[in-house]
Every structure is written in structure tokens, then in C-alpha cells.
Amino acid sequence: MDPEDLLHLLDDQQARRLRVIENLLRGRKTVSTLYWGQRYDLLFLLGLAKHLDRGGLDATAQALVSQKLATWTPNEQPQLRLTAKGRQRRDQVPTYQPQTRALWPQLSLAVARQRLLLSVQVVSQYAHRTARYYPLTTDLATRQAVRQWFHQAKSPDLATRIFTALTASLTQLPEKTAQVLTAGFSGYQQPGLTNQQLAVDLHQTPWEIYLRHVDGVVRIAQDARQADHPLHALLAPAWQTAVTRSAQATLRAVTTTALTLDQVATQRQIKPSTVREHLLEAAIMLPVTALPYERLLPQATRQTLLAALPAQLDDWEYTALPADLQARFDFFTFRLLAIWCDKGGAGHAGTPND
């Protein structure tokens, strides 16, 4: 990621923890990472750079600071805030805003991407009756899935159906995004271009090209959720719930029984703290209607805590609450209230620059 790319993940009003952005990219799903990812509106970054080393953004961040585009703010964790110069630079050079980014945490991007690229290659070679070619390098699971799909879907009009379906998806995308995706396809007498090659050709950073590529893949995967789509059987299984299976089970136990959270922990044979972590994960990643907030956050609790908390969510600190409130309400309740407010509960202010 270039400094210009990181610039667009920062804000001049909200100091942002560099480690949170790093952990999002690496796919670390701790409640703290997910919560601040929500506050920064950066949850779409989740798992986009799983091979990024810890500290992998440090040099990029320091480059922004050296150029006086951002500044470090005092905190227990390194936080960055854009300077006025940084905001001006960010606004002068807008970056690509993916259309489908809200869906990214719900799709196994690596699975969908590999299956799509290999299936396009296979169909292209099949349409030209090519028996010998070098298939794209993918994992065994991808090869097996595409092989099974192809043998079931194979027909004289398969290539036409795939072409029609892909065209329908691509026309919904910005022209340059469609260009990036199609240029990355491999097929008959056409080797796909890499993101690095496309970045040079299109005068954009490899990261921005990658965002366009993912946007295109997710658009096709979204359209393929329709049962009559020729790639439905191949891509539909790549969709996943945004929370872990264990968290789903915990949420189900809470919403379908009258058990207390501690009783749910006993029933599921997990720690009470794990139950609370599961619920916070679900609260962050799922729609506000998915949790029984009226039960978990009674109106009296909300009113009492909100009366003692600052107006801006980013200024909330559990340890700053009066001792008597800390004795009455645990951190789980405090954090759940913050998530509820961030999602519009009680008409509370969201991001500081709303």
C-alpha cells in the first residue's frame, strides 16, 4: 500500500489507530478491531491483505508524517490524524470507492476470486476446443470445485451464457473497473494482466487496481446468487455469514431462549466472557435488528449511561465513568451501547464529522 492509499483511510477529525487498520487488512477479528473498524467505516478492509506483516504499514504511515500530511497523536497505541495539508491532498486526488464494499465481509473473497478466474479460463478454452493449456495456479479445492461445476454446466451454449451474464454484471460497474476485471481474465490466447501491470497501464496504484478488481468480483458473485445464473452453483457457496458459526450459535441461544448470558455460557460450555464477545461481534457485523437490544440494553440502562457520557462516541471511555456506574454496568454493556448508538440508536451522532 502506497502512502497515497493510506491517506484515503485516514481522517482529519478522527484520530485512527494504525494497528486497527493493519489488523483489519490481516483479517484479525478481535472485538476491538471490529469495533474500531466500524467507527472508521473501514470494515470492508477485513482480510484484504492477509499476508501483511505486523508493522507492515509503519513505514507507509511514517512517510505521510514526514511529508506533513498526517501527524501522530499521543495514545497508548499509535494513532494518525490528517493535517490540513493531508486533507487537501486527499480531496485533490480522490480514490476509487467500491460500489459493493458493504458486502465484502459476507463473501469469501479468495474463494470467489479464484473460482471465477479459473472458470472463465476453462470456459474460454472449451469454447475454442482447446484441449491442452496451462490452467491458472489455484489450490486443490478450487480446482475440484470448478471441475465439478464445469462437468455439470457443460453445454454447447455455456460460453454464450457466461458471456451474457458477465456482460450484465460488468455494465453495472464503472468503465475502468470493468476494464480492470476483464483485463485480469485469462483465456484462449489471452494471459491475464497482473494488478501491477494494470497499475502502470492505467496510472493508478496497485492497491486501487486491487479494489476495483474485488469490486468486480463481488458484483458478479452478487448477481450469481440468482438460481438461473450460469455461475450460481460455483459462486453461491462462497457467500458466508459475517460472524463466526460459534457467534451465530450464541446469538441464536440468546434470541430464542429466556436464558441469562451466564446460563447461555453454561449451556454452550463456553466462558461467560466468550458469550459477550460473540454478541459484540454480532452487534458490529449484523444489522441492528439481529440483536434483542431491548433485552440486552433496557431503556433505563441506556438513559442512565447516556446521561453520563460525552456526545461524541470517540470520546467515550469506560474508565472515565463514575465508579458507581462502573459497578452497576460492565464493559460489555458500555460497548454494546456504543455499537447501538453508532448504528443510529436514539438518533445518536455517528462519526465525529457527521
Rank of each mutant, 00 (worst) to 15 (best):
F150S: 01
Y35I: 03
A183L: 05
Y188E: 08
D201E: 12
A236L: 13
R101W: 01
L64T: 03
R276F: 04
T244G: 07
T194M: 13
A282Q: 03
A300K: 11
W239K: 00
Q125T: 02
E277N: 06
Y40W: 01
Q62L: 14
L45N: 02
R212Q: 09
V217C: 12
L305Q: 09
D2Q: 11
L34I: 13
Q248I: 06
S155H: 08
R89V: 11
V146W: 00
A110H: 01
A227C: 04
F44V: 00
D41L: 10
R90T: 01
T177H: 10
N195F: 09
A168K: 15
Q189F: 12
V146F: 05
Q222F: 02
P191W: 08
G27S: 04
S32R: 02
S119H: 09
N353S: 06
R161S: 05
T289D: 12
A102H: 10
R219P: 00
T83I: 06
T130C: 04
R328M: 05
P174Q: 15
A131F: 13
A283K: 13
L80Q: 04
I162M: 10
N195E: 03
L321I: 10
L6T: 04
T177F: 11
V200K: 02
R268I: 10
Q240G: 00
A233C: 03
Q13M: 14
L18C: 12
F185T: 09
R101P: 06
E175N: 01
L170S: 15
T256E: 15
A238G: 07
T241Y: 07
R132A: 07
Q179C: 13
D5Q: 14
Q299A: 12
V122S: 08
Q248L: 15
P287G: 09
T319S: 12
V264Q: 07
R252G: 08
P105N: 13
